[in-house]
Computed example of a mutant assay.
Amino acid sequence: MERPNKHAPVPFIDLAAQYARLKSDIDARIQTVLNHNRYILGDEVKELEAALATYCGAAETVSCANGTDALILPLKAWGVSAGDAVFVPSWSYCASAEAIALLRATPVFVDVDPLTYNMDPASLRAAIEGCPSDLTPKVVMSVDLFGQCADYDTLTPIVREHGLKLLADSAQGFGSTLNGQHPIHWADAATTSFFPAKPLGCYGDGGAIFTDDAELADTLRSLRMHGSGTDKYDNVRIGLNSRLDTMQAAILLSKLSVFEDEIAARNRVADRYNAGLAQYVQVPQVMDGVRPIWAIYTIETDEPDALQAALGEVGIPAPRYYPKPIHRQTAYADYPTGAGGMAVTDAARLRAISLPMHPYLDVATQDRIIETVKAALH
């Protein structure tokens, strides 16, 4: 019998395995779209929006072209603009702050909890109360980093106390729950991204906004279609061209049918990692009451660069999220950090490294990853 190649490349996310499972259904759904030719806002888009709303308990779902637009659209609908402050974690992908800056508002960076990496409530309060006098606090944008929803039970009272809107950026966390509730239970709007690498991803770009506010949903539908009104040639506001195409909606409908099963599989993979690595690295911590979806499995070690090199030598990808947080990036260096500082973010960025994570990671391959990590650190 041929022995497995110990240096065979390991996919960080195995979309090919997922497609093999869903191939007949995805192919049939794509063919249906090719047959009816309604490539923009076809019936599959409406079907997906309804299914997503049911899944996360939202009254309304508005799909759009990508996860960044999903953040821009509600901020724009709320009138966020120059002179307004939006409080956001720095340890996130740049899109979280980019959406704010593109509207000429000011991102104010907030530190994160050292265990969950999500927005720290004490840091948020300090940032709001110490907000520069030339800015008007408007929105708190939480980020459900790495697939674990934020501490909404603690964050929400702070947001409401100061009369702000709460926008939950769930690009990495759609499907994660706190005490059985999705983030929209607390937020004025929640968003997700359907970028292919996300746990619920399409084969291109896509995004969605969830809300219980029917008026906001109507405004979002207008904004995603150039600010359209009832008359096709009388646009009533300045909007975007940000529609989810029908083909991607068809693919997402297929993937949504196995999403819960895949989340369960991701949690089994995470449990195996935790059991195998807890004595060697700092494994991820999950807040009480949270069901994570493990978009990214991130550990901490004193030697992340050496570990990344050792894993890479045997074909195991181990990217670093995020060695340069947003407040340290060139385009965002002049924006303010909250009054509480960024000590946790700046410490975690030096130690964090991520391992392959997907529902189709078999035990033998995962054992190979675990043993490689252990060998590299001893």
Rank of each mutant, 00 (worst) to 15 (best):
226 H>I: 15
138 K>G: 01
194 F>Y: 10
183 P>E: 03
200 L>N: 03
150 A>F: 01
183 P>Q: 05
129 E>R: 15
158 I>G: 08
139 V>C: 02
227 G>K: 09
117 Y>A: 11
131 C>M: 07
204 G>S: 12
174 F>L: 13
216 L>I: 14
189 A>D: 00
169 D>N: 15
146 F>V: 13
187 A>M: 06
179 N>H: 13
102 L>A: 12
124 L>M: 10
193 S>G: 05
214 A>K: 11
121 P>I: 04
185 H>C: 06
180 G>V: 10
149 C>D: 02
106 T>R: 01
103 L>W: 03
148 Q>F: 06
146 F>K: 05
125 R>Y: 13
98 E>M: 14
227 G>R: 07
207 G>D: 04
109 F>K: 03
181 Q>C: 13
99 A>W: 01
135 L>A: 00
100 I>S: 02
126 A>H: 10
207 G>M: 04
163 G>I: 07
99 A>E: 02
153 D>H: 14
135 L>C: 02
145 L>M: 08
167 L>C: 03
216 L>W: 07
118 N>R: 13
139 V>Y: 00
202 C>E: 06
137 P>G: 03
213 D>L: 10
173 G>M: 06
151 D>F: 10
117 Y>G: 08
124 L>D: 04
125 R>C: 09
220 L>W: 07
126 A>L: 13
222 S>H: 12
141 M>W: 01
101 A>L: 03
117 Y>W: 13
108 V>I: 11
205 D>E: 15
226 H>E: 14
180 G>C: 14
224 R>Y: 08
108 V>L: 07
197 A>T: 15
209 I>V: 15
225 M>Y: 13
164 L>Q: 03
218 D>P: 09
136 T>L: 10
185 H>V: 05
153 D>T: 13
110 V>C: 08
196 P>S: 12
154 T>L: 12
100 I>L: 04
127 A>R: 07
185 H>S: 10
180 G>R: 14
193 S>C: 05
